[in-house]
Computed example of a mutant assay.
Amino acid sequence: MSTSEMISTGALSIMGLILLILLAQYLRLRELWKMALVCRKSANWARIWEMENRELRSALRAEKAHIEQLQRKLVILQELIPAQE
Score class of each variant (00 low, 15 high):
1 M>R: 01
1 M>E: 02
2 S>Q: 01
3 T>R: 03
3 T>N: 04
8 S>W: 02
10 G>H: 06
11 A>T: 15
12 L>Q: 05
12 L>M: 05
14 I>L: 02
16 G>Q: 09
16 G>A: 11
21 I>P: 01
22 L>H: 09
23 L>A: 15
24 A>I: 09
24 A>N: 08
24 A>G: 12
25 Q>L: 09
25 Q>S: 10
25 Q>T: 10
25 Q>E: 05
26 Y>F: 14
26 Y>T: 08
27 L>M: 15
27 L>C: 15
29 L>N: 14
29 L>T: 10
29 L>Q: 14
30 R>M: 11
30 R>W: 12
31 E>F: 08
32 L>C: 05
32 L>N: 12
33 W>Y: 09
34 K>E: 14
35 M>K: 11
35 M>I: 08
36 A>F: 06
36 A>T: 08
37 L>Q: 15
37 L>G: 12
40 R>Y: 15
41 K>C: 07
42 S>R: 14
42 S>P: 00
42 S>D: 13
43 A>W: 12
45 W>H: 05
46 A>P: 01
46 A>R: 15
47 R>C: 07
48 I>K: 07
48 I>Q: 07
48 I>A: 03
49 W>R: 09
50 E>V: 08
51 M>P: 00
52 E>V: 11
53 N>Q: 13
54 R>F: 05
54 R>I: 03
54 R>M: 06
54 R>W: 07
55 E>H: 06
55 E>K: 14
55 E>Q: 11
55 E>R: 13
58 S>C: 03
59 A>Q: 10
60 L>S: 09
60 L>N: 12
60 L>Q: 10
62 A>L: 07
63 E>V: 06
64 K>Y: 03
65 A>T: 06
65 A>P: 01
65 A>F: 02
65 A>W: 02
66 H>L: 08
66 H>C: 04
68 E>I: 02
68 E>S: 10
70 L>V: 10
71 Q>E: 05
72 R>G: 02
73 K>Q: 13
74 L>P: 00
75 V>K: 14
75 V>F: 04
76 I>G: 00
80 L>G: 00
80 L>A: 05
82 P>I: 01
83 A>Q: 06
83 A>E: 13
